[in-house]
């Protein structure tokens, strides 16, 4: 029997054709435009545009704060996911719903709200600035914004894996005389680890490209608190399309690499837990 004849359900060709055309027109061809535009540059010109001191400083800030924020989210996101799955406490349903807030809240709204909290007259700023600390309009402000937008990625990747974890393993560990901490370290954590790493990578990927929530609180001081997406905007405003596109290509290459890593991690998660994602 041929492959097509085994398909009982209709619509394969239609849905395949439609999906591919729509995907190509709206996503693939426009993305290809960046590479085609950049190919007009020689390798040296490309290197020159993408490694000016200001752009290099922006990579350092974007990548550094994104990594830092993803790390913080991995730790606290794991604790939050653990609390939501394993414990009952008042207000749990509400907390569980609101964890997704950064997915639903427009980034510009988050950005101005965070700036209002951490600037000189804000709730947090008015307490810490007299003590000589400054968060808004410094790299620390960027970090706070990236923690905000990345948290749900970790919680929502770890939570289902933790829920599906078989308690028999923990019971076996306990009956063999393991302490709770030993059980966590040697039984639970290894099972959660791939999911935790996936959540970390997702939060990192989102944080590197984030624009709206960061731009207000960053202060955008050249060489100090300019993120890489802002460098693209700056070049566009100077009508330097080639320069903007070259930086965009650097960011896209990073996104593709991260996407490959995340896919591999998700494969690892399902092979570890038998969960089909």
């Amino acid at each position: 029997m041929s492959k097509a004849a085994r398909r009982v359900l209709p619509g394969f060709n239609l849905s395949l054709g439609y999906t591919l055309v729509y995907l190509s027109l709206l996503v693939l061809i426009p993305l290809a435009a960046t590479f085609i535009k950049t190919s007009a540059l020689t390798w040296e010109q490309f290197w020159q545009v993408t490694t000016t001191p200001r752009v290099l400083a922006s990579y350092k800030l974007s990548f550094g704060t994104a990594l830092f924020a993803a790390g913080i989210n991995a730790v606290f996101g794991l604790l939050l996911a653990w609390s939501l799955v394993r414990y009952s406490f008042p207000g749990k349903k509400l907390v569980d719903s609101l964890v997704d807030l950064p997915f639903a809240l427009p980034t510009a709204v988050a950005g101005i709200a965070l700036t209002a909290i951490y600037s000189k007259n804000g709730w947090v700023g008015s307490i810490i600035e007299p003590l000589g600390y400054k968060i808004a309009f410094t790299p620390w402000g960027v970090l706070i914004a990236l923690i905000f937008i990345g948290l749900p990625f970790v919680v929502r990747t770890v939570q289902p894996i933790l829920q599906d974890l078989d308690t028999e393993l923990e019971e076996a560990a306990a009956s063999l005389g393991a302490h709770r901490w030993q059980t966590f370290r040697q039984v639970i954590f290894p099972a959660l680890f791939p999911a935790l790493l996936t959540g970390f990578a997702l939060a990192f990927a989102r944080a590197v490209g984030e624009y709206g929530s960061v731009i207000f609180i960053a202060g955008n001081i050249p060489l100090v608190s300019e993120i890489t997406p802002l460098m693209i905007i700056t070049k566009l405003e100077q009508y330097d399309y080639t320069g903007a596109t070259a930086i965009a290509v650097v960011m896209l290459l990073l996104s593709f690499t991260l996407l490959l890593i995340i896919n591999a991690l998700q494969g690892w998660t399902s092979s570890r837990t038998g969960r089909d994602r």
Binding site: T34, T107, Y211, G212, T228, I232, Y241, A248, S255, N263
Partner: peptide, 27 residues
């Protein structure tokens, strides 16, 4: 993975690609 692609592209880059196609100097 291709369908997921827009998730991992920076929103600024998402805007830029349409400038490259439809902008005054675009295709």
């Amino acid at each position: 993975s291709l369908i997921d692609l827009p998730f991992s592209v920076s929103p600024v880059v998402a805007g830029l690609i349409y400038v490259l196609i439809f902008g005054a100097q675009g295709w």
